[in-house]
Simulated scan of single mutants.
Amino acid sequence: MFTRLKTFARRVRRGVLAHRRLLAFLLTAAAVATGLSATRPHPPDTSTMTVASRDLPVGTVLGAADLIDVETDPNSMPADLAETPVGERLAAPLRRGEPVTDVRLVGPELTEGYPDLVAVPVRLPDAEMAGLLHVGDTVDLYATDPATAKTSLVTTDTLILSLPQAAAKSGDDSLTQGRTEGYGVTSTSTGRLIIVGVSASSVEEVTSAGVGGFLTFAY
């Protein structure tokens, strides 16, 4: 029995010696792999952020195809990300890859940074007139009574908060057309909706002027 064990040990020793270089290489490779694994940094934590999948113009009603989720560093995420942007309308253009934040959407967030202002939608009777405006402009609003043709100042230093939609197609707003023709001007323009920032005390006056007359502006 002892002889057999001795013979077996001798064979094992010969096998180890015959392959000692290969064994040494394998042991070294295992040690290097273990060391690299131990020193390799852990993958950084990421968070999901919704961004624009393409360039989007102002007034776009966001759909699922307009948005895409990306993984990003949690520390780089804006604090005011919109929770459910699908179905919301853009108050400002959005570039591809830009996150969708509350201030980019039509809503109460438009007055963020302007605590003394209230967002009020009004319609200008001429879409081309509205096309001269830019978000951030300050203008004086005037209203013209279609019955008397008298024009009066409504507000001064009125902030343009958003130009949320393009002009509607002709024939979609018979009320606006009728009022315009009654004023003595034949027009097929349905105008354009804009959102302005005014003081709380001016909301009723601005709203009444927009409903009962034709609004225009001056820089």
Rank of each mutant, 00 (worst) to 15 (best):
V139I: 15
V139N: 11
L141D: 02
L141G: 00
Y142N: 01
Y142S: 02
A143K: 01
A143P: 04
T144M: 06
D145H: 01
P146N: 01
P146G: 00
A147N: 12
A147Y: 11
A147K: 13
A147I: 09
A147Q: 13
A147E: 13
T148E: 02
T148L: 04
A149Y: 04
A149C: 08
A149Q: 14
K150M: 04
T151P: 07
T151A: 07
T151W: 01
T151M: 09
S152C: 08
S152E: 15
S152G: 09
S152K: 11
S152M: 12
L153N: 02
L153S: 02
L153Y: 02
L153K: 08
V154Q: 00
V154P: 00
T156L: 06
T156S: 15
T156N: 10
T156E: 15
T156W: 02
D157I: 08
T158G: 12
T158W: 15
T158S: 12
L159S: 11
I160K: 07
I160S: 10
L161T: 10
L161D: 06
S162R: 13
S162V: 10
L163P: 09
L163E: 05
L163K: 11
L163C: 07
P164Q: 08
P164I: 05
P164V: 05
P164S: 07
P164H: 07
Q165F: 09
A166F: 04
A166D: 12
A166I: 04
A167I: 02
A167V: 02
A167Y: 03
A167C: 06
A168G: 11
K169F: 06
K169R: 11
S170C: 10
S170D: 12
G171C: 06
G171M: 08
D172N: 04
D173T: 09
D173N: 14
S174R: 13
S174K: 11
L175F: 14
L175G: 12
T176C: 06
T176S: 14
T176Q: 14
Q177D: 14
Q177E: 15
Q177C: 05
Q177K: 12
Q177W: 07
Q177P: 01
Q177V: 08
G178Y: 07
G178V: 01
G178W: 05
R179S: 10
R179T: 05
T180A: 03
E181L: 04
E181P: 01
E181D: 04
G182F: 09
G182S: 07
Y183T: 02
G184A: 06
G184F: 06
G184S: 08
V185Y: 05
V185C: 00
T186M: 02
S187K: 07
S187L: 06
S187W: 07
S187A: 11
S187G: 07
S187H: 05
S187Y: 06
T188Y: 09
T188R: 10
T188W: 07
S189Q: 11
S189Y: 02
S189W: 04
T190M: 03
T190L: 01
T190G: 13
T190K: 03
G191L: 05
G191F: 03
R192I: 12
R192T: 10
L193E: 15
L193G: 03
L193Y: 01
L193F: 05
I194L: 06
G197Q: 11
G197C: 13
V198H: 03
V198W: 04
V198C: 03
S199D: 15
A200G: 06
A200I: 11
S201Y: 05
S201T: 14
S202Q: 15
S202Y: 09
S202I: 03
V203W: 11
V203C: 10
V203P: 10
